[in-house]
Amino acid sequence: MRTDEQPERRARRPRRLPRRRSDRVEALTTWVLCGLVAATLVATALVGGWVHAFASDRIRAEQSDRRPVPAVAVADAPVVPGDGGVGPTYGTVRWTAPDGTERAGSAQVPPLTKAGGAVTVWTDDRGDVVAPPLGSEFPLVMTATSVVFTLLAGFVLIVFAVLGERRLLDRLRAAEWGAGWRRVEPVWSGREDSGRR
């Protein structure tokens, strides 16, 4: 058979199934939900980065503003029972401020510190007793906490969005099935004047 006698072959386009309105809405809402997941991940990364930078800056500021100073306990420190052991103990201590003046005040001391015992207190630039600077684990803990809470908030938002999408699609599909049934039922049941009984 010669090639010029062969029937002309046409490139067939794949036939697409008719799409109902609910199918188009579902496709759109699926893309919206994917975008919501992506936005949650981006927001989590941004919040985590911001919190880590903030916590790191706070540690640097506290470490530059606070310094350990030797002090002497004025009185015996009592033992304070706490949850599962000994709680923090506070006692009166004496120390020398940066301007050379003697100061006295309350500070956290080790339990059972005797009067005249050496302790270390943290002071600011003016010589006032302050809390010790935050530890190096502070940025990691704050970052992990913020990431967990941001992911949890995003997860809750996504769950509510999925539930809303399901409810919307269920109503839309029910309306489409109802309209289709109203169109087909008279012919199917023979109530239409089609000659079929």
Rank of each mutant, 00 (worst) to 15 (best):
V162G: 00
Q108E: 15
V129H: 02
V93F: 06
P98H: 08
T92Q: 10
R20M: 10
R21K: 00
L163K: 05
V130I: 09
W122L: 03
L36T: 01
F54P: 01
A73N: 13
E26G: 11
T143M: 10
R183K: 06
E137V: 13
E185K: 14
V32L: 01
G135E: 09
D125Y: 08
P68F: 08
G190C: 00
L152W: 09
D125A: 15
W122T: 07
R60S: 11
V141M: 07
D57G: 06
P111H: 07
L157M: 10
A45Q: 13
W177P: 01
R10L: 06
A75C: 05
V187G: 14
V72W: 09
E62Y: 02
M1V: 02
T96G: 12
D4W: 09
G84W: 07
D125L: 05
R19Y: 04
G105T: 04
V141R: 02
G164D: 00
R12M: 02
M142P: 02
T123E: 01
A118L: 12
P132Q: 09
R15I: 14
S22F: 11
Q63W: 10
G100R: 15
F160H: 02
S136C: 00
R21E: 09
T92Y: 12
Q108D: 05
S136W: 04
W95N: 06
G178R: 08
D76Y: 07
V184K: 00
R12H: 10
R126N: 08
R183I: 03
L140V: 15
L163S: 03
R21W: 12
L33P: 00
V72R: 05
G116D: 10
A55R: 01
R183Y: 08
L41M: 12
V129F: 04
R15W: 09
V42Q: 07
V74E: 12
R10K: 07
T89H: 13
V148R: 04
V148G: 06
W177Y: 13
Y90Q: 14
R126K: 12
R66T: 10
E102V: 07
T143A: 07
V121T: 14
G190P: 03
R24Q: 15
A11G: 12
L140S: 09
G164L: 02
